[in-house]
Write a protein that binds this DNA or RNA. Structure first.
Ligand code: MN
Ligand code: MN
Ligand code: MN
Ligand code: MN
Lengths: 234, 234
DNA sequence: GCCATAATTTAGCCTGTCCTAATTTAATAC
DNA sequence: GTATTAAATTAGGACAGGCTAAATTATGGC
């Protein structure tokens, strides 16, 4: 039996939480992300444990097994290939790809995955700058990243990743040209956290809440998989 | 709530059976097509009736309501747009599009549907020659069609539709060039029903079982929505 | 009209996924 | 150390969707 959407979504959520805070992952954190009742998640975790997709100690939390991690990474690959395809070949606006991919990721075949990857020529990153796992389903390594909110006046950095969660924020960022690969300079950091950037010689102000979900890399340690857009930069 | 895959598949099946034999549609015919136990279908039909998607008389059979028919046609539109897209833009082989579309048809958004239709420039027929319902979700009219198996020696006809059910048959037919739009001439009908055709000046033999699932139109009553391929035809 | 048969429904069961409410456990404060 | 509190599990129930086996109904043959 191939895993159901519920099983896949739960594994994907545990994977993300493990990346953010390390195992073990608490039941209520999973429940919050999935927007489900805690008791619902507990019973799902029971099934995951039966299927040896996670290990678990009562009241302590869960951790993915190798098997569980592979399923999570597979879903992640589907998600990010789909996002990239929707944006590049079906002319989807940036902010709509996440929701569509979140549903379709559970329903495409391996054949479909292969043809997506082939048509896209094995892309390394999705439209938000997130790394796309390879066919081997090895977890992509977390590149060194700083939140934009931690930058100081005068820093010159490259936008590397933007959280794909909030549609409104994404639409705004795309509008002012803040997308992965763009080089920017921090012009000002105001008391309340509002950050002013120089983007293509135009100043753009970003509230702190949005700035924490934007990751940047210093110009001197950009890794080869991030292509840098130098328009408007010196 | 939007209808589940089970609800949509059941409505689609009733729709097809109504086209083939007219209402009311028997429970076991539906069960056969869906490959489910009869009792399973009975309980699904109960839910369909509750939701006013069908009307039903016990022991007599079921019939789609307007509401039910619209849902069925909507799924059919998704299915045929997807098949066309997979074949034209993702380079899917002819015989694999049906299975993939049969799953995805339940999971794409209206946005996705619109972008498919737009990218394909509102196609009228899918790769098997089946008419694609329009945005208005009116049932496509059944064009006059004869099975290839009912043709006689000397007839010149155009292939209009080929059943999308059997992958092996489809692969063979694509291989020998028998696809919708192709003009052929019946060269011979053997005692056991084996039919020999002239396709592009090459003779091809088709067993009767396959021939019954191929629909043709006489050259003089081809309607404008079927494009005729005259290669090799006088 | 009655009987055999086939189609259909009913009965009873299971699993997965959801919920709320009650209980238990772990962690923290004092 | 004990009390408080937050997190997690358990209890109990709903519903969709699946099954087999038993009962029921309709129908065609005679
Ligand atoms: Mn895959
Ligand atoms: Mn993304
Ligand atoms: Mn639609
Ligand atoms: Mn088709």
């Amino acid at each position: 039996m191939s895993p159901s959407p519920v099983i896949e979504d739960t594994l994907k959520t545990i994977y993300h939480l493990q990346q953010e805070a390390g195992p073990p992952v608490g039941t209520s954190d999973i429940a919050d992300r999935l927007d489900k009742a805690q008791a619902t998640v507990t019973s799902t975790l029971d099934r995951l444990e039966d299927q040896e997709l996670i290990t678990r100690e009562p009241y302590q939390g869960s951790e993915l097994t190798d098997k569980g991690r592979t399923v999570a990474v597979e879903v992640l690959r589907h998600h990010r290939l789909l996002e990239t395809y929707l944006a590049d070949h079906l002319d989807y606006p940036w902010e709509l790809v996440h929701e569509e991919a979140d549903r379709l990721e559970h329903h495409i075949s391996e054949e479909f995955e292969r043809r997506l990857a082939e048509t896209l020529e094995n892309p390394r990153r999705d439209p938000h700058g997130d790394p796309i796992p390879g066919e081997d389903l090895e977890p992509p390594n977390q590149d060194p990243m700083r939140p934009l909110s931690a930058c100081e006046v005068g820093d010159r950095v490259v936008i590397t990743r933007v959280s794909d969660r909030n549609e409104d924020d994404l639409a705004y960022l795309a509008d002012v040209g803040i997308t992965p690969g763009t080089a920017v300079r921090i012009v000002d950091v105001a008391p309340f956290g509002m950050i002013t950037l120089d983007v293509d010689d135009t100043e753009q102000a970003i509230p702190e809440g949005v700035a924490t979900s934007i990751r940047v890399t210093s110009l001197n340690d950009v890794d080869d998989s991030v292509s840098v857009d130098h328009r408007g930069d010196a």
